[in-house]
Amino acid sequence: MTIETGYNFGYLDENTKRMIRRALLKAVAIPGHQVPFGSREMPLPYGWGTGGIQVTASVIGPQDRLKVIDQGADDTTNAVSIRRFFAKVAGVATTERTSGATIIQTRHRIPEVKLREGQILVYQVPMPEPLFRLEPRVSETRRMHALADYGLMHVRLYEDIARHGHIAISYNYPVMVGGRYLMSPSPIPAFDNPKMHRMPALQLFGAGREKRIYAVPPYTSVQSLDFEDHPFQPIRANAACALCGARDSYLDEVVTDDKGGRMFVCSDTDYCNTRQAAREAAE
């Protein structure tokens, strides 16, 4: 793809990048704390990953290899258009292979393959404030974070147990970072939460509409909130992937007809394709 001329490298101007870079460094220094930033208008609407794109644009360089996933898939509209955007405005190489990428921008999944040092995972975050459904006032939630006063969230989990017998949160499951800050992991399935704990890769979070950046440095403790007698349990459909047979990956349920037919397939397309190719090679 040809590089678009007339734009600065990575689309954003240098002043904006510097502002975002300063926010990123403070975010890394205070794991889980939300740093406000001057989110810019991007050439796509809020909700399509403007926060993640601004973070990626401030970090990316010509040596990087970018992978973008949307719900685990490399070939959905959001992922394809963001990948093409950076190929156009930064001229960077792109890839669909998790292990070959240096920057992975993600919407709502963490890849199945273990990430390593030298990789950066950039999350697109719709709502960075984990307490917003419990306390709508930003001035109050800010104070609650300052005081590490997270009783309200524990009450919410307790009410789930009282009502349903278990904690009924299947995605966007709140976590404690570094034992200090309550953080929204973005709407990843609770199944992915354990992958955040002591991940060797750097995790950066960008919320464009809400204008917040936060981060989890490598090898940092990330614990899903729970109770001693109701420990956190990641949820996974009890089935094997219909395409690659994986029993350890997160599955999407696909409705195949209007007579109740359905199948389960890996949500991580790269993981599934790699497994299918390995199986074909073995046959």
């Binding site: 490298f9 240098e14 990048k17 870079r21 990316i60 360089g61 010509p62």
Partner: peptide, 8 residues
Amino acid sequence: VLGAQSCF
């Protein structure tokens, strides 16, 4: 541009 990027 690229100098600041690699330094960052």
